[in-house]
Amino acid sequence: MSEDGELVFRRPAALSDVVTHYCPGCMHGIVHRLIAEVIDELGIRERTVGIAPVGCSVLAYHYFECDFAEAAHGRAPAMATGIKRTHPELVVFTYQGDGDLASIGTNELIHAAARGENITVVFINNAVYGMTGGQMAPTTLPGMVTTSSPYGRDVKRQGYPVRVCELVSQLDGTAYIVRRSAYKPAEIRKLRQALKIAFQVQMAELGFSLVEVVSNCPTNWGMTPKESLRFVEERMIAYYPLGDYRVRDEVKTLK
């Protein structure tokens, strides 16, 4: 409280008052909070339905104070479609990692985007399967060592990373496709703004919105949190450039 008793900072109403299971230094906590802040700001907590993935954020439904479903691995965009088509007045978002969204769930993602479903996808890309203990993901960088690419990802044998924003932004059904990060305060502010716009795009029924967050994994990258942020800034963003990949003209008029 400030001197005159004005509340200047508090937990967002959309964020549950519980301890998360996330590792120290992981960006999930930051992104959860930003989503909750945006839900509060837009006043939509009581009509928002979230869909948790399979992966590190499988328990995301414990951390938000809105209705939630837990999807099968990769199927969140299909589930979101079913919810949104039946109840267009709800605000529906999925929260998915790179294994969930860019590997096992590519089909569901691409077609939800192509149909222009009025849903919002929050995509956490940390280039590794976190929950299963650090295996190669579709977004693992070339040369990056994981438990299933122990000699470093060899693109000749293990293929190239999938750049989701570049891929999805080709689809006409998409309205707002952007890539952000959260490795420093300025980027966190930009990410918050992007999340807000993504929800507004859905509420204005402009089409499919996706915010990719270039994220970290100190635990499975074998780094300190600080080292992992440097890796995000220097290596991850070099392969996954931050920016706007598709912003339909109508989006620019949103207030």
Partner: peptide, 22 residues
């Protein structure tokens, strides 16, 4: 009422799951 020709039966059943959740 809601109708979607899904991208696959995997998609279809998960859309049913979503709709039924409501």
């Amino acid at each position: 009422r809601a109708f979607v020709q899904a991208e696959s039966e995997v998609g279809a059943i998960n859309m049913v799951y979503g709709a039924a959740c409501t």
